[in-house]
Computed example of a mutant assay.
Amino acid sequence: MTATLPRVLPSPDGKPVPPPGTAEAFRAFARDLAAGRRQWTAETAQFITAQFDQFAAHWDTTRATGRDDPVRDALARGGPMPQGPCLELGSGTGLFTPILTGAFPRVVSVDLSMRMLQQANGRSPWRVRADASGLPLATASVAVIAAIDMLLFPAEIARVLAPGGVLLWINQLGYDGPLYLPVSTVDAALPGTWQATESEAGWGSWAVLRRTR
């Protein structure tokens, strides 16, 4: 079941929409990966790592949108958040980590790219280089998973998230984003039963998916 909230934060002018063909190719990959129609391989992980290592030094000024409206709106209106550790997947240079650390007692930032994690020094106090398809975390060990412009690895998210835990699914550019997945697709891919709340904010969109069973 999904509840859709009305927008309260407007979309500013100047949205940095990526090239349609490139964005759709990435969205197709994200959909297929989430649905299990495509496998995540070591070669794919190496390719993604190399790309983001290359982008890291200039990410904040040339690649990142820098818009935090969807994250802030999700935390404000997505319902009560469990007060346990938060796992930030695909944390990059830590642009959004300070917002999460203001909401949760501990945030662990995970990324494939070591250079991205190095750029996050001063923003992310707990940084781990890891592949989100096989996290070095115990089962049911985190209360919240924040996935901001991230590929979806449903089985691993369900494994590490505690009963009653929450997934924050954020797309900074909404349906224009290269890794956008609608909440219905995310819900269908996740094992178990979930309740979702979603809305749009700024340039992007957010969903809070709460594990019920």
Rank of each mutant, 00 (worst) to 15 (best):
T2F: 03
A3N: 12
T4V: 14
V8R: 03
P10K: 04
S11V: 13
P12I: 08
K15P: 03
P16F: 05
P20Y: 05
P20V: 07
G21V: 06
T22Q: 13
E24L: 13
A25Q: 13
F26Y: 13
A28N: 11
A28D: 14
F29E: 09
F29C: 07
D32S: 12
A34I: 06
G36T: 13
Q39G: 06
W40T: 05
W40L: 11
T41E: 11
A42Y: 09
F47T: 12
I48Q: 03
Q51N: 11
Q51M: 15
F52Q: 02
H58Y: 10
W59T: 04
T61L: 07
R63A: 08
D68K: 03
D68F: 03
D69M: 04
D69V: 00
P70C: 07
P70A: 06
P70T: 04
R72T: 04
D73F: 02
A76Q: 10
G79C: 10
P80W: 06
M81Y: 08
Q83Y: 07
C86K: 08
S91Q: 11
S91I: 09
G92I: 05
F96R: 01
F96V: 09
T97R: 02
I99A: 02
L100F: 11
L100P: 00
L100A: 02
A103Y: 05
P105W: 08
R106S: 09
V108N: 03
V110C: 09
V110T: 06
S113K: 02
M114R: 07
R115K: 15
L117E: 01
L117R: 00
Q119L: 09
G122A: 14
S124I: 03
S124D: 06
V128T: 10
D131H: 07
G134M: 14
G134L: 15
G134Q: 15
L135T: 06
P136F: 11
A140H: 15
S141K: 09
S141P: 05
V142M: 15
V142C: 14
A143H: 09
F153V: 11
P154V: 12
P154L: 15
A155W: 06
A155F: 07
V160R: 11
L161E: 08
G165Y: 09
L167G: 00
W169E: 01
W169I: 04
N171K: 07
Q172R: 08
Q172Y: 06
D176N: 08
L179R: 01
L181S: 01
P182K: 07
V183G: 00
S184R: 13
T185F: 05
T185W: 06
P191G: 14
G192I: 13
G192R: 09
W194I: 08
W194P: 01
W194H: 10
A196D: 01
S199V: 07
G204M: 07
S205F: 02
W206N: 00
W206I: 01
V208S: 03
R210I: 12
R211H: 14
R213A: 15
R213E: 13
